[in-house]
Structures are given as C-alpha cells and as structure tokens.
C-alpha cells in the first residue's frame, strides 16, 4: 500500500479546494467535482491534450525508429566502431536530464550557440537565428533533446536482443535466398519484438508526462505554445497555488495514460497471470 499512498492522497486532493490559504491554515474543503469542471471547461486544456498526444506519438515513434536503426548499426559495424558507438550512447544516456536541458539551451543559444555558429559557418543564414521563436521550432529542440537521451536505452537493449539470434539463423535465411529486408522480418524482428513492446510502453509513459526538459527549455513558451499536460498541471496548479486543480489535472493524465495503455497493460497483467 505504501507505494500508492501519495497517489491516493492526490486523488483525494483533486476533490478539494486546496489553495495557499487552505494549505497554510490546514483546512480541508471538499468541493466535489468543481476542479474537474473548471479544467474541462478551459478551452486551452483541450489544446494542451491534443498537443501532448501528438508530442508523445512523434517522440515515441522517433525514439523507436532511430533507436532500432542505431541497434542494427551496432550489429553491423566493426568491433572498434561498436565500442566507440556504445561509449557515445552511454555518454548521452548518463547525462542527467537537468544537465542535458541546460546543454541543449546552450547549444541552441541565439547569439552564442554552437548550432547557429556551425550553420552560419556552412554558409547558411543562421546568425542570431532564434530557435525558440515559434512553438514548432521550440518543440523541435525539445524533441531533439528527448529523443537524444532516449535512443541509447532503446538501441542498447535492442542490440542485446539481436545478439540472442545466432549467426546460423541468418545463414539459414541467406541460404533460402532471403534479402536483407526478408532477413530482418523473418529472423530479427521476432527476436526483438517483446523488447520493442516493453520499450514502447515505457516510452509512452515517459514522453507523455515529460516535464524537466519541456519546462527547462522555455517554461512552455513562446506564448504557451509548448505547454504540455505535465506543464499545464504545474502552471495552473502549483504555479498559481491551486493545488486541487493540479491534482485534478494529474488524475486526468493518469486516466488518459491508463486508458491509452489499457490494452497493453491487460496483456501484461495477463501474461503475469499465465506465468504461474
């Protein structure tokens, strides 16, 4: 029960009015569904929901596709390159998100960022180009950051799964005259499929509620165009000291995620049952 405690408390708070005054004076004021009504009636909330879903899909898709590509690359390169690439992946993985966010802000800095300086050096007009002028462009930087940090786990795990496939299986497939694509679908994919499912599941959860990176880059700016659900909960709730609202939004997030992953979760719980 220990692990569910704060979550249970969170659900309870979502039915309360809990502002600065109630928090300080330790009052409990039940207001039923008022918080939910307020959130659901905010047109901006629906924009944020749609945006968060799209953001999650794009990031998960990019993470999985690029991660798989790097995994296959790892399997194909020579030993020395393999080690270099693994080390690079581990480097990117090990950077704590707080630091990673600061690094990306610095890379994409308008005046002194190396990205602008490099692009300008290539003859493109990127001097003083602002990457954070529009929501789309800012999301681009955030996505680069999130995907950059997510690729290593996916790539290394999938690479490990592919090593479970013996070379004789590929040879057998090659003997049957299978091309690279056929070899992938017939031999590699079945071996890595369970891993892909697990990683997709985790990525959906992580990307849907990602906070540090999005908040760190631009606090949801410019003009609230990169506010995702986790930020919305934080800014509407904690920033404005309306903790009941924050709790309601977080409960909605949990329900959405659970609903979205229900099919998958059922599959997992059932497979856990079957293991008996």
């Amino acid at each position: 029960m220990l692990l569910g405690w704060p979550v249970v408390r969170d659900v309870a708070i979502s039915f309360q009015r809990l502002g600065l005054a109630e928090l300080v004076q330790r009052r409990t004021v039940w207001i039923g569904l008022e918080n939910y009504r307020e959130v659901l009636a905010d047109p901006f909330f629906w924009t944020v929901v749609l945006r968060t879903v799209v953001f999650t899909l794009v990031n998960v898709a990019l993470t999985m596709v690029l991660g798989l590509a790097v995994a296959l690359l790892l399997a194909a390169v020579s030993r020395a390159v393999q080690i270099a690439l693994s080390v690079a992946l581990v480097l990117a993985w090990a950077v704590p998100p707080i630091s990673a966010t600061v690094i990306f802000q610095w890379l994409f800095d308008t005046q002194f960022g190396i990205v602008n300086q490099a692009l300008t050096g290539l003859g493109l007009d990127f001097a003083d180009h602002s990457w954070f002028a529009t929501g789309i462009s800012t999301f681009g930087v955030i996505t680069a950051l999130v995907v950059w940090q997510a690729i290593p786990l996916v790539a290394l795990s999938l690479f490990a799964s592919t090593t479970a496939v013996g070379p004789e299986q590929y040879e057998a497939a090659a003997m049957d005259g299978a091309g690279p694509w056929r070899r992938f679908t017939a031999v590699t994919w079945p071996a890595i499929r369970p891993m892909v499912l697990v990683l997709t599941f985790l990525s959906v959860i992580w990307d849907f509620k990602v906070f540090t990176q999005v908040y760190g880059i631009r606090q949801g700016g410019p003009n609230r165009e990169t506010v995702t659900m986790a930020l919305y909960a934080y800014q509407q709730g904690i920033g404005s000291r309306e903790f009941g609202t924050a709790a309601a939004i977080s409960v909605i997030m949990m329900l959405m995620l659970t609903a979205g992953l229900a099919w998958y979760a059922r599959l997992m719980v059932r497979s856990a049952e079957d293991e008996q």
């Binding site: 606090q219 949801g220 700016g221 410019p222 003009n223 609230r224 506010v227 800014q235 920033g239 404005s240």
Partner: peptide, 9 residues
Amino acid sequence: ETAPNPLKD
C-alpha cells in the same frame, strides 16, 4: 509573473 509571463510573450 509566473512563467510563462504574458508581458514577456
């Protein structure tokens, strides 16, 4: 004044 500050935007 809480980010995102509408005056800045």
